[in-house]
Design a protein around this nucleic acid. Sequence first.
DNA 1: TTTAGCACTCAACAGACAAGAGTGCTAACA
DNA 2: TGTTAGCACTCTTGTCTGTTGAGTGCTAAA
Lengths: 343, 343
Amino acid sequence: MLTERQLLVLQVIIDEFIQTAQPVGSRSISKKGEVTFSSATIRNEMADLEEMGLIEKTHSSSGRVPSEKGYRFYVDHLLSPFRLSNKEIHSIQETFRDQMLEFERVVQKSAGILSDLTNYTSIILGPEVFETKLKQLQIVPLTPQTAVAILVTNTGHVEHRAFNIPQEIEANDLEKMVNILNDRLYGVPLVQLHEKIFNEVGDLLKTHTRNYEQAFQYLQAALLNEQPAKLYVGGKTNILMQPEFKDLEKVRSLYAMMEKESEIVHLLRSEHPGIHVKIGHENEVDAMQDCSLITASYALGDDQIGTIALLGPTRMEYNRVIKLMNVLSSEMTDTFKSWYQGE
Amino acid sequence: MLTERQLLVLQVIIDEFIQTAQPVGSRSISKKGEVTFSSATIRNEMADLEEMGLIEKTHSSSGRVPSEKGYRFYVDHLLSPFRLSNKEIHSIQETFRDQMLEFERVVQKSAGILSDLTNYTSIILGPEVFETKLKQLQIVPLTPQTAVAILVTNTGHVEHRAFNIPQEIEANDLEKMVNILNDRLYGVPLVQLHEKIFNEVGDLLKTHTRNYEQAFQYLQAALLNEQPAKLYVGGKTNILMQPEFKDLEKVRSLYAMMEKESEIVHLLRSEHPGIHVKIGHENEVDAMQDCSLITASYALGDDQIGTIALLGPTRMEYNRVIKLMNVLSSEMTDTFKSWYQGE
DNA sequence: TTTAGCACTCAACAGACAAGAGTGCTAACA
DNA sequence: TGTTAGCACTCTTGTCTGTTGAGTGCTAAA
């Protein structure tokens, strides 16, 4: 167990290091206002803290630097409640004030403001579309051979996909089919679309349209094939400003990772609701072992979940950032809720 | 005017430097197969070339490096016709083989393949939507207060925008309005939509719908407000691999520039049809003064123009890259043309 | 228990030096 | 007259050395 004084010393070291990115020495600690002991005393405490693995030296006679374990302890026990400045609060409210009616815009803007306010890189996983419900399905013919299928959900989300009309199918049949589908599938969550069609609508379709098989396959390929969750990234270049990334090799591997969207989607999707902090090697991805990743979730309507994340060096302003993400995620949730209330 | 031999020396220097990124010395040139003179002779020629400003030294006793003027000369006069390898041709054809029916996919894939094959950064300016024609306009109500407006063009392009329905307007009116618009505006190029509505359709609408003014304003805001040209960027991280960008500061400014989409759109849009090469300071943007930008245009149907661009260091494989962009732009043009033929 | 003092360690910086690559110039050669 | 061999010179790069300063650990005194 840590003594009061050790807690204080640890706190000062981490706070200081987060500010300056420089190893902090005993003397500079002793000169701090809230510290009343001599540098020698502090050296003793530091030796103890080091023994516990909470801080490290970069070389035998350097000042101390927080270890990952130290950051973990800091995040778990030493986080002081943080007050955002008026300016920050203002700029968030400003962002959400103007009416935005589409997910994309809300999410995009949120990513922007988050990275701007933190100088880290924000990554937002767009809302899962699974639970959103079908509002309308439509097919607009472009040429005799091609058409575009459009799908609108109750959240205002629009998916579209162009496809070839197979020769065996007449425009007539296609239209009938769409009518039936609209009739039967209104309000069905997208995630159930597949089974619903097979179990309930399939037979009906067969009786009404010739060449049901082909037509249906095409439609399915056009619409249900892929709904890749979208990533919104803000402040990608902020990483370059951090002194820990003056090594190009690190930047390279980190950027390479960020280009693999599917991996990131997977990473973020697996998080549970609430705020989570992953420090350094707690991240499984190799390229992120010098980084911390903070994730928070936002809700949409009942339980729909998207994730907002912030990527920075392990030396992160945890308290500020966590506060910020709290505010933002609830702001997003509120915005979405307000849409639902009108329904 | 340059002698045969000077041309040869210049060619070898630039070819060599493009390969190695190292200053090339007289001795290494003399050892080349196609060169038959001694290093001393070459030194004399190099002195002349330097006097003409075509090559430079990095310091008083270093090998030579092409100057921007040298690259310019190289591009204008020394470009040997380049044969793509079978592998490259194959991978391009492969990309365009599978049926893609949407601009986005074609352009996206093109950007990908271009950056993959060159190891530079590709930037493609999506096709201008101005000349594309309205196919269908539609409004899907989401809640009593909100709806999403969808616009489909003859190219299969889909724009959508959610908006608030003002209380004064009844769903009925909105529907009427859409019907009228669809009826009258079918096949009208998007760029003419504005005036067409004002001049021809406005009166008709007024007589049929109450609260025409508001309804119309809303619809207009929803659909016509912005159609920002989309940028598709591929291989952003390739820049990091280039030895000339081991200086973080350069990378930073370059990346910062690339985040300003509007600026790039402006830059690319101003190009005339055909292939253009801008070397170093020929680029007006500060951050690009160590880069070369190669642009080519692609056509869509008659005269619609989009731009594909490639950003790399001035030390670029010009002949290969130019060939590649030629192939790609015509491949894109062909793809789009095939869509039109079916119409 | 705390602190002053001191010897020790190490990174960072600067200067010195050698090696190597490449040049310009001169003089000799075809 | 054009070409080339030879040589002195220049500049970068890497290595080594010594110095400085920040910071530590330990000991002994308060």
